[in-house]
Computed example of a mutant assay.
Amino acid sequence: MLAGNQRHAAEFQSRFDDVQNAQHPDAVTVCCADSRVLQDELWANTDPGSIFTCANIGNRVIQQTPDGDVVSGDVLYPIEHTGTETAVVVGHTGCGAVTAAYRDLTGDTGAEPPGIAHSLTPIRTRLAAGVDLLPADLSESAAINRLVEYNVDQQVQFLLESDRVDDDVSVVGAVYDFQDVYPGSRGEAHVINVDGETDPSALREQAPEIASRITRLWSY
């Protein structure tokens, strides 16, 4: 890892000149912390200061507090303090957190350690209604990948409904595919939600320049 960091340092030596003392990222992204999801590589980002990246299991924007659920501080920070006006929630195919929540909801799993259980609670709570909507004849993997979309939609909706996120902040949902679930190449991010709009036809009409990247597995 340090050898890789040495190569990184040599390549990036001059790229911090304009951002050493302040940051104004164009977007904040929250992705699953899965080791197969390389956030900056996902966007081919090599510009320090361009994207404020957050990662956790299940790409959650929700933080539980004694007073109720709030927008997670790591997601909210750039919106509150650096002028960031785009938030992107990125799920991924075969998500382990969604899988664990699904199995828990369907009675097919054992107890998780407390820290993991705490992180899964806001996902499981919001996936329950989605599980009830699933067609009965789906395989587990097909069900999980549809719930990955449902989870992204729920996280997007939470941001849109929060009074801490201004109305002029655009909220986008996407799914990163490395399992050949969506049409296209492995490693592509597929847009599934923009500001709460989830209908692919409507989204393609709104943004024809990215029509080929707007794909959903499931409309519920």
Rank of each mutant, 00 (worst) to 15 (best):
N5L: 12
R103I: 09
T109M: 12
Y176T: 02
R186C: 07
V19I: 14
T109G: 12
W218L: 03
Q155S: 04
D40N: 15
I210S: 13
G110T: 10
D137F: 07
G187L: 03
L203W: 10
D26F: 12
D34S: 04
S72Y: 10
I144H: 03
H92S: 02
I57M: 00
D199W: 07
R60D: 06
A87W: 00
E140C: 06
V88Y: 07
V194H: 08
N21D: 10
L38A: 15
F178Q: 08
C54W: 03
S141N: 06
N5C: 06
A33G: 02
I192Q: 08
S50G: 11
W218I: 01
P48M: 11
H92M: 00
D17R: 10
F16Y: 14
A22H: 15
D74N: 15
Q13F: 00
A202I: 11
S50D: 15
A100L: 05
G115S: 13
R126L: 07
Y176P: 00
E80Q: 15
W218T: 01
D163F: 02
Y102T: 09
P208K: 07
W43F: 15
G96C: 01
I62P: 01
V98A: 05
D163E: 01
A117L: 11
E149K: 07
A22W: 13
R126G: 07
G68S: 07
Q39V: 15
D26Y: 13
F52A: 14
N193P: 05
E209W: 09
Y176E: 01
L42S: 09
I144T: 00
S201T: 12
V70G: 09
L76D: 12
A211K: 06
F12E: 03
V172W: 03
Y102V: 08
R186D: 01
R204A: 05
Q63Y: 10
H190N: 11
E149P: 03
P208S: 01
D67F: 00
L120P: 02
Y176V: 04
D166F: 00
C95P: 02
V30M: 04
L138Q: 08
H118E: 15
S72W: 11
C95F: 01
Y102N: 09
L120F: 10
A111Y: 10
E41A: 15
S219D: 12
D195Q: 07
E188N: 12
N56T: 08
Q64K: 13
L42G: 11
Q155A: 03
V19C: 14
P114A: 14
T29K: 05
D163A: 04
R204E: 04
V30Y: 00
T84K: 13
R124I: 08
S201E: 13
D108C: 12
S35C: 08
L2K: 05
E161C: 04
F158L: 04
A100N: 05
S212N: 14
S212R: 13
G115P: 08
E140I: 06
R103L: 15
T215Q: 14
S72E: 12
V19Q: 05
V181M: 06
D195I: 04
W218Y: 08
